[in-house]
């Protein structure tokens, strides 16, 4: 199925969870946050959140800023 991650379309396996996606992307969960279709997904729910076709994800961290 196709989902969007940070503005780029990705082909991922059906039934993929956010936890599995984060693992595939080699991200550490301690300094990131994830938004799915404009709502934040708490880290505790990554494992139980199953993605569906067309989901739009934003995965963010921190950069220098004023």
């Amino acid at each position: 199925m196709k989902i969007s991650v940070n503005g780029t379309e990705r082909d991922v396996a059906d039934g993929l969870t956010i936890a599995q996606l984060i693992q595939q992307l080699n991200l550490k969960t301690d300094r990131i946050a994830t938004e799915r279709n404009l709502s934040v997904v708490p880290k505790a729910k990554y494992a139980e959140t199953t993605l569906v076709e067309g989901d739009k994800l934003e995965i963010v961290t921190f950069v220098g800023g004023g």
Binding site: V5, N6, G7, T8, L25, N26, L27, R31, I32, A33, E58, I59, V60, T61, F62, V63, G64, G65, G66
Partner: peptide, 28 residues
């Protein structure tokens, strides 16, 4: 202060800003 931005998913892994900010000394 720090800014919130998308993680880079392509290209080589970059160092995270927060690795250089000692959170025992500074409130983020």
């Amino acid at each position: 202060t720090v800014a919130v931005r998308r993680v880079k998913l392509d290209g080589p892994a970059e160092e995270n800003l927060l690795s250089f900010v000692d959170e025992s000394k500074y409130k983020i």
